[in-house]
Amino acid sequence: MNPLTTSLIGITLISGSLLTMLSSHWLTAWLGLEMNLFAIIPLIINPHNPRSIEGATKYFLTQASASMLLMMAAMINFMDSGQWSLLNLNNSFASLLMLTAILMKLGMAPFHFWVPEVLQSSSLLTGTILLTWQKLAPMSILYQTAPSMNHNILMSAAVISIAVGGWGGLNQTLLRKIMAYSSIAHMGWMTAIIIFNPAITLLNLSIYIILTFTLFMTLMINQSTTLTALATGWNKAPIIMMILLTSLMSTGGLPPFTGFAPKWLIIQEMIKNNNLILPLTMAIMALLNLYFYMRLAYSTALTMFPTSNNTKLNLLFNKQTNLPLLSTLAVMSTMLLPLTSMILIFE
């Protein structure tokens, strides 16, 4: 892609998310979401092939429908209250439409069907942007409007997302689809706690972004998109496979890695609010995610593919990807659990 075009797309993508996150007016928040939508479409289409065009079309139709519902909710709320502030969402029908639009934007159940398909149609770099940066703008709107939402519907969508994210990834062999279902489950965890303690939602989002960046960087180094393609990884790059192994365990929420901290805090906060059955159900369903993470880790990092030692020489002829932040992200994604006590103090 032309460097000037890439720079323009990057600036539009960043400014769109920042505009939504910093705005308190429905029109400017909607404008930021639209800038995000039109900036990411060229990235999905690149490289140009029928599958990427199909993915871009699915993404555009879903996000455009969500933007339409969001604007309709804002107009209904304006006619009811006479103001455009994000913090005053008093109309119940408008809040229901707004919740539906945000769930579609975040790719949460029952509006999750576009996430695996679009991610499978995109490159690894575009998939990283879709699962990290593109979540910031709708999550900021949900963060501000959560007190006005129907909490029963919000909690139901969160639990269904955790279940779908677990069951959907069980029999997948395509790595991008596995990461898509993982994202659906993580969005469910963030949404479940936003009712009780929004600060933990921000912590979960930050750790999720770090983990997702780390996993996608290891996949970019290997240029692997399927489970089979990673089978020879341990022969070629054992250190990268070890980073992938620990990052997968951390993403699944296995102690003593960083990913255990948000699940621990979420379950603890729900128990404080006299919810016992709900966190127990969420923890049980999280074992489904941990299972397919373990299966992926076993087949890539814990087994030696039966090939000759000459296979290791292939690495010398492959184009190496320079990712200087990988070491920093690997440490952050695995060793931040001891800092959880500091987070509890400042909370």
Rank of each mutant, 00 (worst) to 15 (best):
N77S: 11
M72P: 00
M79G: 06
P47H: 10
R51P: 00
M35I: 09
S65L: 15
M75H: 09
M75T: 02
I40E: 09
I41C: 09
L31Y: 07
M71G: 03
G32S: 14
M71F: 06
F60K: 13
K58Q: 06
Q63W: 14
L33W: 04
A73S: 10
P50T: 04
P50H: 06
N36R: 11
Y59H: 14
E54K: 13
T62S: 07
Y59G: 07
Y59Q: 12
I44D: 04
P50N: 06
L37T: 04
K58T: 02
L33M: 14
E54P: 08
I53G: 00
I41A: 13
I40Y: 04
S65K: 13
T57H: 07
P42I: 06
L61D: 03
S67R: 15
H48T: 08
A39E: 10
M35F: 15
L33Y: 03
M68T: 08
L61N: 07
L37I: 05
M75G: 00
A56S: 12
L31P: 12
D80L: 05
D80G: 01
F78D: 02
P50Y: 00
L70D: 02
I45A: 05
K58C: 01
P50V: 00
S65T: 12
N77E: 08
S65G: 10
M71V: 03
T57P: 02
L33P: 06
K58D: 01
R51F: 01
E34G: 15
I44C: 03
Y59N: 08
L43Y: 02
A66Y: 07
L61A: 10
I45R: 15
I76S: 02
F38G: 12
M35E: 07
I41D: 04
L43K: 13
A56M: 07
A56Y: 10
S67Q: 11
A74L: 02
M79V: 01
M68L: 15
M68E: 02
I41W: 09
N77G: 03
P50A: 08
M71I: 03
M71L: 14
K58R: 13
E34M: 14
A64D: 04
L61V: 05
G32C: 12
A74I: 01
D80Y: 10
F78Q: 03
S65C: 15
L43V: 01
A73R: 15
T57I: 14
M71S: 07
D80R: 13
A56H: 12
T57L: 14
P47R: 09
F38C: 13
M72W: 02
M79Q: 09
L31G: 12
F78I: 05
F60L: 14
S67K: 15
D80K: 11
T57Q: 11
L69C: 12
L61R: 11
M79D: 01
L33H: 13
R51Q: 07
F60V: 09
E54C: 11
S67W: 07
A39F: 06
N36H: 08
A56R: 14
G32Q: 13
A73N: 11
